[in-house]
Amino acid sequence: MLSSNISFQNDILKIEQLSKAYNNTKVLDIQQLTISKGESFGLVGNNGAGKTTLFRLVLDLITSTTGSVLSNGINVKGSELWKAYTGSYLDEGFLIDFLTPEEYFKFVASLNKMSDGDLNLFYERFNDFFNDEIIGKKKYIRDLSKGNQKKVGIAAAMMTHPAILILDEPFTNLDPSSQIRLKQMLKQEQEENEVTMLISSHDLNHVTEVSKRIVVLERGAVVHDINTTDQTLRDLEDYFAAQINH
């Protein structure tokens, strides 16, 4: 696949002086954040902390007020190079809902010049995750349940074994078995393909399990940046519990 032909810098994503303001209210303000190749990066924070805003900036879906995001050394703004090696799923806006899942996968596969063989491997890989509810149902994506829509979006993002994978709240709306399966697959991607993974979640349990590094955002700023240990989950729970008493 395309991403395998590109040589990647060690600091695959560099965020510098990045800020985003709406009507003079800053919703995101990050001085410096570097994510290295193969890192699994978990983003946590309460609603409005700026998680989705950060992801949208990395995907060049919104313009930053100041600063820039460098993907493999190139500013994502105005560049289209990153699209070849970045897989992402933030919300339903990433799905083409009047296609069947198969048509959608085929569309994405063909945009990335994947062969039919590659596509079959993909179906094998996701067979458990889809749990016979997605393929061959002759249903449009718009007629699937929320959980199944999410599965389609995540699978399409992971389809090409992208060098960078960005998922916003991937565990919500999934049933427990699918959550477990997804965690397995994410770990597998890290081990086998050295994927650089950016995941946000409200579920501290899941996110600490799949991420080696956790960043806590609060009102747009990085307040904690830690490597995951056995202690991390409890620390995070204490941190968020303390927020209530404010």
């Binding site: 995907l59 879906l61 289209e80 992402s88 933030l90 919300d91 990433f94 083409i96 994405v108 945009l111």
Partner: peptide, 14 residues
């Protein structure tokens, strides 16, 4: 409009 983010992030050049 309903899937514009897909158009912007999938491997499509303008």
């Amino acid at each position: 409009g309903s899937y514009f983010d897909a158009i912007l992030t999938k491997n499509i050049n303008f």
